[in-house]
Computed example of a mutant assay.
Amino acid sequence: MAPTRTLLPDIFRTEECRALRDSMGALLDTKLDWETVRALDEADQFPDRAWAGLAELGVLGLGIPTELGGSGGTAREAVAACIEIARRYPSLAVDYVLCGMVGRMLGDHGTAEQQEAWLRPLAEGSAIHAYGISEPGGGTDALAARTRAVAVDGGWRVTGSKLWISMADRAEVIFTVARTSEPPSGRSRANGLSVLAVPTDQDGVSVRRVHLAGMRGAGTCEVVFDEAVAPAGSLVGQEGRGFHMLRETLNIERLLSAGISLGVGQGALEAAVLYAGEREAFGRPIGGFQAVQHGLVDVSVRLAGAMLLTERAVEDYESGVDVTDISGMAKLAAAEATAAVVDQGMRTLAAMGLARESSMQMFFRDARLQLFSPVSNEMVRNILGEAMGLPRSY
């Protein structure tokens, strides 16, 4: 059989990206071979050895200025890192993105003291922080936050709950979106939300692991704050402007989310093509039958299109162009293309796709998250429809 190819474009066009891909590939092939990933996934475990290896390579510091302990780097390199991680263990890619979002927030809005205390250890891999945004009563509607923070002597008292918070059970600090004041009459609910760094080693913070069908190793948790203490100096940025800080990160978050989807899709497509070339039925490889072959070609074309759209969005982002629309399009296209890839992959592997020793079942489960996270594809369609000049639909 000829070497396995997926017809996917090479979006690692720069020398820096290709060097990053090669170094990450060598590391992850050692730390995250399939048997290791399978054991981690079945046990809902975080890959400590792989995380430490990424820290040594400087991957955790991508997007963080070198003077703050990071590696600098470009958006293209960060997206490339997402793809390389997700094609092996998607759960780890989710954690990588969320820690990166905390890092970007601290790099842009943290004080020198906050950056030294929280950002540098994060970039070096010696500390893990979580981002407490979503709540039981509001996922896509982040402005519906009911968690409250009241100023007291020496800091803040935080009460409320968060849900779907990755790595909260491992985090030293949870950067929590809480309402510190009510918006003035007639003003947007975005006013009055703040971000507070809440240490987890206190009685007022309880964390419960939520065991998911997919992205098992991402460490998804529910967090309850019962008059938890956010000490003096824990407010990140301006009081009441927390949502505006979040909004600044939406474009890069969507590009990184697209990267996760593309990595999942690439891993699943590679596994499906390999299986189709090796599995025989009726005296020939099943990949020789048009019913199988055409399905794999079709999803490869869809994934390739999503990759090229994402690459264009990244190029625009790095050029300073407003990518509000195209980043949403890239996120949407990548998630939908990957959903098609994993479905075709399951059809190609048939019963073997359901076997737990097959990576396809993991890719199939993990791909579901990208359809509604970090924002649902339905909401992305709403936003893009409005951008086209259509009436607002939400």
Rank of each mutant, 00 (worst) to 15 (best):
V79E: 14
D33E: 08
D316I: 01
T140E: 09
G353Q: 14
V173C: 06
N251D: 04
P231I: 04
D108H: 06
A355E: 15
A218L: 10
H294T: 05
E253N: 12
D316Q: 14
R312F: 03
T74G: 07
G385C: 11
V177H: 00
L303E: 05
A339D: 12
V102K: 03
R76V: 08
V273K: 08
V292G: 09
D153P: 06
E16R: 13
L354G: 14
P90C: 13
G242C: 01
Y131N: 03
H244Y: 04
K331C: 06
G242N: 01
D325C: 09
R88H: 13
A112Q: 09
R49Q: 13
D95S: 11
V177Q: 00
G287M: 07
R13W: 11
A130V: 05
D226I: 01
T249M: 00
S161P: 01
T36Y: 09
C99A: 08
P136E: 07
T111C: 00
G217C: 15
I83M: 15
L354A: 15
L196M: 00
A123Q: 09
E56L: 03
R13C: 09
R146H: 11
A43M: 09
L274D: 06
R392Y: 15
A78N: 10
V314C: 09
A335Y: 08
E182R: 01
G61V: 00
T30W: 09
T310A: 14
A337E: 06
D41P: 02
Y394M: 14
T338I: 08
L8E: 14
A387L: 13
R279N: 06
V292T: 13
S194M: 00
G385L: 10
R170P: 07
A127V: 05
A268Q: 05
M245W: 00
I11Y: 14
F12H: 09
P47K: 14
P65R: 10
E56R: 15
T348G: 10
M307D: 09
M1Y: 07
P199K: 10
E248D: 03
P183H: 02
R241Y: 03
G295K: 05
V342Y: 10
A276H: 10
W51P: 02
G277V: 04
D33Q: 05
A86M: 14
R254Q: 11
C221N: 15
I165F: 06
M362Y: 11
A43Y: 04
A232K: 12
M346L: 15
D95E: 04
R18V: 01
S327V: 05
P121I: 02
V102W: 02
M307P: 12
T220M: 10
A52P: 04
R38H: 13
A330C: 13
M101Q: 12
H211A: 13
E222R: 13
Y96I: 01
I326A: 03
P47Q: 12
Q202I: 02
R381H: 14
T200E: 07
T249A: 00
L62D: 06
G63V: 00
G217F: 10
G259M: 11
H129C: 05
G72D: 07
E248A: 01
P9L: 12
E357W: 15
V375T: 07
E113F: 04
